[in-house]
Computed example of a mutant assay.
Amino acid sequence: MKRIKKGFTLIELTLSIAIIMSMMAMYKFTYRGFHNLLNKVDILKCNNSVLEFINFSKRYCRENDALGKVYFSKGENSMMLIIGGRNVKKYKLPSGFKITFINATNSVLNVNKLGQSSDGCTMKYKDRNNNEQTITVSVGTGYVQIK
Rank of each mutant, 00 (worst) to 15 (best):
M26C: 11
M26N: 13
Y27L: 14
Y27Q: 07
Y27C: 12
Y27G: 02
K28N: 14
K28W: 11
F29C: 05
F29W: 08
F29K: 06
F29I: 04
T30Y: 06
T30Q: 13
T30H: 14
Y31N: 09
Y31P: 02
Y31Q: 12
R32Y: 15
R32P: 05
R32T: 09
G33I: 05
G33P: 03
G33V: 03
F34N: 07
F34I: 08
F34C: 02
H35D: 12
H35K: 12
H35T: 12
H35A: 02
N36Y: 08
N36C: 10
N36A: 13
L37H: 09
L37G: 04
L37R: 12
L38P: 01
L38R: 08
N39I: 03
N39H: 10
N39C: 10
N39Q: 10
N39R: 02
N39P: 04
K40E: 15
V41N: 13
V41K: 12
V41Q: 10
D42A: 01
D42H: 07
I43S: 01
I43G: 05
I43H: 10
L44H: 15
L44Y: 11
L44E: 14
K45S: 14
C46S: 15
N47V: 11
N48Q: 14
N48C: 03
N48Y: 14
N48S: 14
N48H: 08
N48L: 13
S49M: 10
S49T: 11
V50R: 05
L51P: 00
E52D: 13
F53Q: 03
F53W: 08
F53S: 01
F53A: 01
I54T: 03
I54N: 03
I54P: 00
I54F: 10
N55I: 00
N55G: 02
N55P: 00
F56A: 06
F56Y: 11
F56H: 09
S57Q: 04
S57T: 01
S57V: 04
S57M: 06
K58L: 04
K58R: 12
R59K: 14
R59G: 08
R59N: 09
Y60G: 05
C61V: 07
C61I: 04
C61M: 01
R62H: 07
N64Y: 07
N64I: 00
N64E: 13
N64C: 08
N64T: 05
D65L: 00
D65K: 03
D65Y: 06
A66G: 02
A66S: 15
A66H: 00
L67N: 14
G68N: 02
G68P: 02
G68T: 02
G68I: 04
G68R: 02
K69L: 15
K69F: 15
K69E: 14
K69Y: 09
K69A: 13
V70H: 05
V70W: 07
V70Q: 04
V70T: 02
Y71C: 08
Y71N: 11
Y71L: 04
Y71T: 00
Y71I: 00
Y71E: 05
Y71K: 11
Y71A: 10
